[in-house]
């Protein structure tokens, strides 16, 4: 063997061993950078998995567009096509969203299967929409499919909503859906409890646990996961309390919960004792039930007696409307 050949052989051995090490390290890096790589199918399409997924996505859209009425048979075809795309690109959010919507009517289990798959991907695991959509599909089954076990489906929906509410950027409206579904489940479990009362009780539990900062999954590792109660939600709770007062006057649980919630959640507002309708400054009678209400917001100056805007001084006469109490 020539000297130059020995040198080449040595270089070859060193280069190969170093390269194997480098490549192994790069493989490890790839898995760290994008954990979804492990979920990509083993189809030998060179490095064109994502491009192929795009092409299949366009074909999938064409197929969906050609369907007049979803049946179990074409739903299964769509499911298979969606799965094929996701094998190539597990992070493709639109595929989860659209295929789940298409499949939810006839084959909700297949739709849930796809959404669960999406929830397991690194790319979409924090996308609350996938969880909310799964909850909606289970929830809608209780309306459209009379054969299903309603409580079971409702419990599943509640589970999905709870997970959705833990995710960042979740829309506050989902809180309402979550509570309504919980109330529906409670109502299914005990038909003696009217749905409205069940909803109020659930809100009460929800608000209390939220204030205590535990259970319901509302507390998160990060502060942004903790949802604050929106003004619109508060308004909804107040109208629920009013409804309970109107429709279930004699329900003790309803009465007790309404009073407790008014005392805790609606401290700053004035409500009619008779119908719990909110009234404004200067009102003498409730605009909803015509009963007299406790007047507030009137200037104490006997020559003025006009409604002020709750500042420190009356805007009409300058009288101090919030005099400091004298220290004894």
């Amino acid at each position: 063997m020539k000297k130059s050949d020995i040198i080449k052989l040595l270089i070859l051995i060193i280069a190969v061993s170093l390269n194997v090490k480098t490549m192994k390290s790069m493989h490890a890096n790839q898995a760290e950078i994008n954990p979804d790589r492990a979920k990509i199918s083993g189809k030998p399409v060179a490095s064109f998995h994502k491009f192929w997924a795009d092409v299949k996505w366009m074909m999938f859209i064409q197929h969906m567009g050609s369907i007049d009425l979803t049946t179990e048979s074409n739903s299964k075809d769509l499911y298979q096509e969606a799965k094929d795309i996701l094998d190539l690109d597990p992070g493709f959010y639109k595929v989860y969203e659209l295929s789940a919507l298409m499949l939810s009517a006839k084959t909700p289990d297949l739709a849930i299967d796809l959404l669960k798959r999406g929830q397991e991907t690194h790319q979409n695991k924090n996308d609350w929409r996938l969880y909310s959509m799964a909850g909606n599909i289970r929830h809608q089954e209780t309306f459209f499919n009379k054969k299903v076990n309603k409580r079971e489906k409702l419990r599943e929906a509640i589970g999905f909503y709870r997970l959705a509410l833990k995710k960042p950027g979740v829309m506050p409206v989902l809180e309402k859906t979550y509570i309504k579904t919980r109330a529906q489940e409670a109502h299914e479990a005990n038909n003696d409890v009217p749905l409205v009362i069940a909803e109020l009780l659930e809100w009460d539990k929800y608000v209390n646990t939220k204030m205590a900062g535990s259970e319901y999954g509302m507390e998160g590792e990060g502060g942004d996961m903790f949802l604050s109660l929106e003004e619109n939600t508060k308004k909804d709770i107040l109208s629920l309390i009013q409804r309970v007062k109107r429709e279930h006057q004699n329900n003790l649980a309803g009465k007790k919960t309404s009073k407790a919630m008014l005392a805790s959640l609606f401290k700053g507002i004035h409500t009619c004792n008779s119908c719990y309708n909110e009234y404004g400054a200067g009102h003498k009678f409730c605009t909803d039930c015509s009963k007299p209400v406790k007047v507030y917001g009137i200037c104490p100056n006997s020559q003025c007696r006009k409604t002020h805007s709750n500042g420190k001084f009356c805007e009409h006469c300058g009288t101090n409307v919030k005099p400091k109490k004298k220290k004894k």
Binding site: V16, V20, M23, H27, S41, G42, P44, S47, K50
Partner: peptide
Amino acid sequence: YSLASLNGVTLFDLSLFSMGAEAFY
């Protein structure tokens, strides 16, 4: 290019140079 998907023989693996999905996401 397909070696990674064929369970990673690391001697001639061009898939290491393909990071399109990572770029997109």
